[in-house]
């Protein structure tokens, strides 16, 4: 239902050009949680922002039900905004801290003139607060953001996105600021949204174990490129790209003694700078070959639900 095609976003800072997105193709289908995983600076957040037309790409297009979102105007653009929401990593940054929780959540309703009167507005807001687990909702509605904890405020941010009854949500590291103990609670909200309301979600994270818990499909990004994607089971059980393997082996597990039997991946110290034409990962790749230095690999399917960009396969 929403699809990014060959997206390129370059940031220029004086002479240095940072390729945040360099020809990325993603798609999110109905009732699907898609995970985007990668290290810091791999372009995950930029991808999320570009998909929602918060960042103009250099080239490429985003199709929402077949329409290019960068060319939407007037009513259509408003409808696009209503149906597609974003949840940010840092809830303290993402809400206007002068406003009360009620006003933060009601803001979207007011922009789109959804409720007919104050009563209906209040009903919708309270319902949404209850949905995200902020009970008693009357008290939360009256409080200011600085009176809430990070987890509570993240739930407010989620409520703000949900109140418009969207069909697609970009969740940009929604749990990375949260305590381990409340992560599962917030992640369950997302799962419930997909199962009960049929909402599609693009979950951006650097923590691949989170995706194992919620995602249906996973895209692995490295320096502005998708290097591997496929169904969660395929990617986690049989990671192909050396970088994906490294990511998975970096997940802390209770008993690390068995880890070496899983993969024996060592990431090389970066020995030489990237030469600008080969595979992005070769400076750190333990399996780097001569061809990796010369040419970038393209995504190719190893099975119907598993694609990887690596010359090893």
């Amino acid at each position: 239902m929403i699809e990014g095609k060959d997206l390129r976003v370059y940031f220029k800072s004086r002479d240095i050009v940072v390729k945040a997105l360099d020809g990325v193709n993603v798609s999110v289908k109905d009732r699907e949680i898609v995970g985007i995983v990668g290290e810091s600076g791999s372009g995950k957040t930029t991808l999320g922002r570009t998909i929602l037309n918060l960042q103009k790409p250099l080239s490429g297009e985003v199709l929402w039900n077949g329409k290019n979102v960068f060319k939407l105007k007037g009513k259509e653009e408003k409808e696009f905004r209503r149906q597609n929401q974003i949840i940010y990593q840092n809830p303290y940054e993402a809400v206007d801290i002068r406003l009360k929780v009620y006003d933060i959540v009601a803001e979207g309703l007011r922009v789109h003139n959804i409720p007919k009167d104050k009563e209906e507005e209040s009903k919708i807001v309270m319902e949404t607060l209850r949905d995200v687990g902020l009970t008693p909702e009357d008290e939360y509605a009256k409080s200011l953001p600085n009176q809430l904890s990070g987890g509570q405020l993240q739930r407010v941010a989620i409520a703000r996105a949900l109140v418009l009854n969207p069909s697609f949500i970009v969740a940009d590291e929604p749990v990375s600021m949260l305590d381990m103990s409340i992560r599962a609670g917030v992640l369950d909200i997302f799962k419930r949204l997909r199962d009960e309301r049929g909402i599609s979600i693009m979950m951006i994270t650097h923590d691949i174990s989170t995706l194992g818990y919620v995602a249906d499909r996973i895209y692995v990004m490295y320096q502005g490129k998708v290097i591997e994607h496929g169904s969660t089971d395929a990617v986690l059980d049989k990671p192909l790209h050396p970088y994906t393997q490294a990511l998975i082996s970096a997940v802390p597990i209770p008993d690390p003694s068995g880890r070496t039997s899983l993969f024996s991946i060592k990431v090389k110290e970066e020995m030489e700078p990237y030469n600008g034409k080969g595979c992005r990962y070769y400076p750190r790749c333990p399996f780097a070959m001569a061809s990796c230095r010369e040419k970038e690999p393209n995504l190719s399917g190893v099975s119907s639900d598993h694609y990887v960009a690596c010359f090893l396969y």
Binding site: L54, E77, K78, R81, Y88, N90, E93, D96, V111, H112
Partner: peptide, 13 residues
């Protein structure tokens, strides 16, 4: 450039 301003844009303001 604060996130909450972008969030408002994302809400359709």
């Amino acid at each position: 450039s604060r996130t909450f301003v972008e969030a408002s844009r994302a809400l359709g303001e």
